[in-house]
Amino acid sequence: MSVPAPRDAYGTHVLADLGGIAADMLRDPAALEAILLNAAKAAGATVLSAHFHHFGGEHGVTGVVLLAESHVTIHTWPEHRFAALDIFMCGKARAEDAVAQIARELKAEARNVRTCERGVVPPR
């Protein structure tokens, strides 16, 4: 079995854990949708659609923004003042810029960001 040659990455995949966010913000699907849509556009991505679901009462929100360049997702836990982001963007879109803008708009007090270039095959 042959191994493909190394190549440039197809895209950047960022996982971000954001903490210290106001619980009421993490329960507001409309506000979260606006924040993620604005961040995707500011990062140079093309928005195709979005869907956000609030689990009711004091519970959190799960949301996805579908992009021509891939996706932005958020899952929130208001009781822990925590949000998990998953952002994958290819082409000229800038996933790291989207994360930074979302963290700013949510006024996150803490963040743990992990970035992975997707599509790179390491040499054997």
Rank of each mutant, 00 (worst) to 15 (best):
S2T: 15
P4W: 01
R7K: 15
D8P: 12
A9I: 05
Y10T: 11
H13K: 07
H13Q: 09
L15N: 12
L15G: 09
A16K: 02
D17Q: 15
L18A: 11
L18N: 10
G19H: 08
G20H: 07
I21D: 06
A22V: 12
A23H: 14
A23K: 12
D24A: 14
M25H: 15
L26F: 01
R27V: 05
D28P: 12
P29W: 04
I35H: 00
N38W: 00
A40W: 03
K41N: 12
K41V: 11
A43W: 06
A43Q: 03
A43T: 06
A45K: 03
T46V: 14
L48M: 13
H51T: 11
F55Y: 10
G57L: 05
V61D: 02
L66E: 11
L66S: 11
L66R: 12
S70L: 06
S70W: 06
V72T: 04
I74T: 07
T76F: 09
E79A: 14
A83G: 06
A83R: 03
A84S: 14
L85E: 00
I87Q: 00
I87M: 00
C90G: 14
K92S: 15
K92Y: 13
A93L: 02
R94P: 06
D97V: 05
A98W: 01
A100L: 13
Q101N: 07
I102H: 00
A103N: 07
R104H: 08
E105K: 01
E105H: 01
L106Q: 04
L106T: 04
E109R: 13
A110S: 14
N112L: 15
V113E: 10
T115E: 13
T115Q: 14
E117G: 04
G119V: 02
V120K: 10
V120P: 02
V120C: 04
